[in-house]
Design a protein around this nucleic acid. Structure first.
Lengths: 154, 154
DNA sequence: AAATATAGTTTCACTATTGAACTATTTAAG
DNA sequence: CTTAAATAGTTCAATAGTGAAACTATATTT
């Protein structure tokens, strides 16, 4: 096997693990004690979509619907989320943010933005541009891979 | 605030979230039913260090020592890990892999290597080289940031 | 009308995590 | 030397996230 590639793979595995860990921890510091990271990501998605369903969240986060129900219920208990039945199809429940949820998300989002900005600023703009571009390409490849695997499961 | 940077920050947040999620899920598929991802990462670290302590693992993974005790105990129950008391300082316990643990790690590691290699191969070597280099730089910045925050807590 | 599919929930079992109390051991101070 | 403080690791209770399976309610297909 090509040795150069082996080295790249090793480096990728090591660095992606560390950056994820550290990044998640930094976010936890910002998100603070009101929310967990997963709860914050959930608010983020609903905020971006304005309104969505559990099934949609389960697909995006790649977990089972029962996992989503649990997260949503906790957010709902804290008053951050609204559950609205679709009157056309009474099986589906639309999820959206309450005033309180919206406010909390925007607050923490600002903090996270400043955090991410502060370390992206330590790079040349061109370098970070290139980095994110490759990162997005990687994302596409991973998504395709996932779709192929799903098809194989038929 | 600079609008170009805001866009980069948004893209970074979105793509890093998605790649992490998808990546973790792909690894879960490879690691299979014998181990969780965290357990695999733990085996990986111990394998690389040959031998280490709980305190060391807690620092690297950025979690409390009680979290490590739990993971290690599960791995120990399954016979993947050896706990050896240091005779010079009887408080410390050295962790190492059993034959069985070593074998399991190498098997799953090979699979993960192939997986990572398969998608890194979809890039030009130069592009992925640059990507990993920037990623590593980011890692350094994050580590420095963490150290600064730790000092502030004094 | 009956069978099947879909959206979401509930329950159970398990893993990861923190914080606090605790044991055993080592190091530092008086 | 003895006591006080520090360190390594464990235990325990509580909380969050997760998947699997059974379940409810509603919609679609046959």
């Amino acid at each position: 096997m090509n040795n150069e590639i082996k080295e790249l793979v090793d480096r990728y595995i090591a660095v992606s693990f560390m950056v994820n860990r550290t990044g998640e921890n930094l976010i936890k510091n910002e998100v603070g004690s009101t929310l967990t990271n997963d709860q914050h990501y959930t608010l983020r998605y609903i905020h971006g979509a304005h309104s969505c369903t559990s099934t949609e969240l389960a697909e995006v986060f790649a977990v089972k619907k029962s996992a989503i129900t649990a997260i949503i219920s906790r957010l709902w208990e804290k008053g951050f989320i609204l559950r609205t039945r679709n009157e056309k199809d009474r099986r589906v429940v639309y999820l959206s943010l309450t005033e309180k949820g919206e406010r909390l998300f925007l607050e923490t989002e600002t903090k996270i933005h400043k955090l991410v900005e502060s370390f992206l600023n330590e790079f040349e703009q061109a370098e970070i541009q290139q980095f994110i571009q490759t990162y997005e390409k990687l994302n596409k490849i991973l998504i395709e891979r996932k779709e192929v695997e799903l098809e194989e499961c038929l």
